[in-house]
Design a protein around this nucleic acid. Structure first.
Lengths: 226, 226, 226, 226
DNA sequence: AATGAATGAGTCTTCATTCAT
DNA sequence: GATGAATGAAGACTCATTCAT
C-alpha cells in the first residue's frame, strides 16, 4: 500500500514534469530568474523571450499570458518546494531533536537550491489581494506549519521539548532568517567583508553557518527554560 | 527644561515638515502604501495621483520622476527607521539582557509603525543592481548591525552572554522573523484562525506575541550552552 | 518737410525701442539665442525663463504666449534688419559699383551682427504655412529686393552693368552665400582647418573673406559678358 | 554589357529596397515631408503616423525612436544625395568649364529632386551640437568640397580658370543660392508675381533659370579678372 | 506548430499656460 | 506688478497580446 502511494506520487511528479515541454521549461526558467531579480511587473515578456531565446509570441502561445506563465511556474516549482518530511516524522530511529535537525537541513537545502523561486514567493506573499498564486503560497505555508507542529508536538510528548512554544513564530524564524540570508546575501557579503569570495564558496559557507546557527537556535529555544 | 525639550522636538518636526510640504508628504504617503502593496513597477504614477487626490503632473512637478519620488520617500522615512540605541547602549543602569529587550521592543515598534515602508524595503533589498536606494538600505543595515554587535559584545564582556555567537545571523533572525510576521500577516491570520479579529487588535496581539517570543529566543540563544 | 518725416521715422524707432522694457528685452534676447540654436519648437519656455533668469510665468505674462514672444522678437529685431540704403541710392558721389560694394558690406555687417536672429529667419522662411512672421519675412525680402533692383537698374542705365541680370537670383546669391557661411560656420571651420581660431578672430576673417569674395563676384556677374 | 549594367543597377535597387521594407520607406517619406515643413521638434510621431497611415506604435517598432527614424532617413537619403562626379572629373573629353556646368546641373537636379530632404539638412546644419546627423552632413559637405576643389584646380592647371579663387565660398554660393531658391520658393513666387503658376511648371522654370544663372556666374567668377 | 508583424492601451514625462495671491 | 503652484493636454515610448500565415 505504502509503495503504491509512493509510486502514485512519483508518477504524479512524473506527470507534472512531463506536463511542460522543453520550450516551456526553458521559458519558465528564464522568467523565474528575471522575476526574482526585477519583480513580476518589472519584467517584460520581451525580456523573458530574449533571456529564453524564444520568439516573443511564444509566451502567449504557450501560456496564454504573462500572469498564467507565473502561475505555471508556481505549479511547476511549487511541487518540490514543499517540505518532504512525512517519512522523517514516522521514523522511529530518530530522536525529536534529530528530526528538527533534518527539517532544518532539508529547508536550507531547498531554499538555496531554488533561490530565485524563493525570492518570487517572498515578493508575492506581500501582496494583499488574493490570487491563485497567493492561494498556493498559503497552502504551502499551512502544510509546512502542520509538519513542523507535528514534529514539535512529538518532542513535547517525549518530554524533550518544553511546553508553550509559539510554533507559528518559530516557523517564521526558520523561514524568515533563511529568507533574509538568501534575499539579502549581497548585504551579508559586505557586512562580513566577503566581497571577493566566489559565489559557490559563499553559498556553501552561508549554508554551513546557517545550519549550525539554526540548529543551535532551535535546540536552545525548544529546551531552554527562562 | 521640559519646555526646551518640547521646543526642540517641535523644531525637529518643523524641519521635517519644511523639507517636504504637505502635498509632497501626501503624495509620498499614498505612494508608500501602493508601492508596499503592488511593488514599485506595479504601481503607476496615475495610481499614485489618484490615491493622493492630486493632479497626475504634480508627481513629476514635485519629485521629478517616479524614481525620485521613491528616493525622496526613503530619505523621508529612512531617517526615523534606523534604530536609536546610542543612549541605551551607554546606559549603565541596564543589564545587557535588559538592553537586548529594549532593542527588541524598539525594533518591533518601528517595524509595525512603518509596515508599508518596511515592505518596500523588503522588496528593494532583493534587487541585485545597486542604486541610491539599495545604498541607503545597506547603510541602515550596517548601522543596525554595529549597534547590535556592540550590544552583544557588552554582554559577552560582562560574562552574561556566551561566546561564539553569529551576530549577523542573529540580526537576521530579529529582522527576518519580524519581517515574515509583518509581510505575511494574512497568512498568520489564517493559520491561527484569527480571520475575524479587527486589524488593530490583531496587530496588538502580534506585537505582544512577537515581543515575548523574541525576548525568550534571544535569551536562549545568548545564554544556552549546547 | 523731409526733416519732419525723418523725425517721425526716428520717433517710431524710438517708440518701438521703448516699447519693450528691460525684462522683456532680456527675455527676447535669451529666446533669440535659444531659438537660433534649437529651433522654435525645440525650445521650451522653461529653457527661455532659465536662460533669461526670469520667472517662468513672466513669459506668458509679458508676451501672452511663446508664439507671441517670437512675433515680438521679429517686431523688435526686424526693424533694424532691413537694409538701409535709401540715402546710398540717392548719393550722387558714388558710382554704381561703389553702391553695390556698400550694399554688400552693409548686408554682411547686419547678418554677422544678428547671427542668431538670422538663423531663426532662415528656419522660419522654410515653413510653408503663412503667419505674421512669414508675412514679415516676405515684406523684408521684398523691400530688400526693391532696393537691389533699383541699385542695379541705376548701374544698367549708366551702362556700367550688363543687361539681362536675374536680380532675384542675384539677391539669393548675396543672401544665400552669406547665410550658408553664418549658419554652417562650424563646417567652414573644419573644412578650412581653423578649429583652433578664437571665435572673434574667425568671424573677422569670415567677414573679410566674404566681403572680398562677394564684391568680386558681383563685379564679375554684373559686368562679365559670356 | 548593357544587361550587366542593368542587372547591377537592379541589384543596387534591390539592396536599397531590402534595407528598408515598404512600410519603413512609407514612414520615412511621410516623416521627411513633415520634418521639412515643420522641423524635427515641431513634428510629433503622431503626425508622422497619421501622414504615413500607419499605427502610432509602428514608428518605435520599426525605428526605435523618433531620433533614430531621422537617422535612418539620413542613411536612406544621404547615400544618393552626395555628388557623383568621379567619372566626370576623369573624363578627358570635357573641358573644365563643361565639367563645371555638369556639376551645376547635377547639383540642381539633386536638390530639386530631394527638396524635402534638403530642407531638413538645411535646418540640421544650423544646430551647433554634434550628432550622428551633423556628422553625416559634414562628411557630405567635405566630400562635395573636395570634388569641387579638384574640378577647379583642373581648370586652373589648364590655365582656363584664374588663380586665387575662394573655393569654399564658391561652393557656398552654389549651395547657398540653390538652397535659398528651394527653401524660400514661395517668396520667389510672390516677388516675381508667379502666384498662379502650377507647381511643376514653376519648378521647371526655377531649375532652368537657376542653371543659366549659375553657369554664367561660375564662368564669370572663374575667369573674370577684376 | 510557430512566428513576424502589428496594435490599442498604457507607461512616464514635459509642455505652455493659467490662476490665486 | 509679479510669481509659485498647479494643471490639462500632449509628448515619446513600451506594454502584453493578437493574428494572418
Amino acid at each position: 500500500m505504502f509503495v503504491l502511494i509512493k509510486r502514485l506520487f512519483s508518477f504524479a511528479v512524473f506527470i507534472r514534469v512531463m506536463e511542460y515541454n522543453d520550450k516551456q521549461v526553458q521559458i519558465m526558467e528564464a522568467a523565474e530568474k528575471l522575476f526574482a531579480e526585477q519583480g513580476f511587473a518589472g519584467t517584460s515578456v520581451r525580456d523573458i523571450a530574449e533571456a529564453a531565446h524564444v520568439n516573443l509570441a511564444m509566451i502567449s502561445y504557450y501560456f496564454g499570458s504573462k500572469e498564467k506563465l507565473m502561475e505555471a511556474m508556481f505549479h511547476h516549482r511549487g511541487v518540490d518546494f514543499k517540505l518532504q518530511l512525512e517519512n522523517i516524522l514516522q521514523n522511529k530511529n530518530l530522536s525529536p531533536i534529530q528530526k528538527v535537525e533534518r527539517l532544518i537541513d532539508d529547508y536550507i537545502e531547498r531554499i538555496f537550491k531554488k533561490q530565485s523561486f524563493h525570492k518570487i514567493m517572498a515578493r508575492e506573499q506581500m501582496v494583499s489581494s488574493s490570487s491563485p498564486i497567493t492561494e498556493q503560497i498559503y497552502e504551502m505555508k499551512q502544510r509546512n506549519f502542520s509538519l513542523i507542529k507535528e514534529l514539535i508536538q512529538q518532542g513535547q510528548k517525549a518530554g524533550q521539548f518544553k511546553k508553550n512554544i509559539d510554533i507559528s513564530l518559530l516557523m517564521m524564524t526558520l523561514t524568515g532568517t533563511s529568507s533574509q540570508l538568501v534575499t539579502a546575501q549581497h548585504y551579508y557579503r559586505k557586512i562580513n567583508h566577503l566581497e571577493d569570495m566566489p559565489v559557490e564558496e559563499l553559498e556553501k559557507l552561508m549554508k554551513k553557518k546557517l545550519s549550525i546557527y539554526l540548529k543551535n537556535l532551535f535546540k536552545a529555544v525548544l529546551t531552554y527554560e527562562g
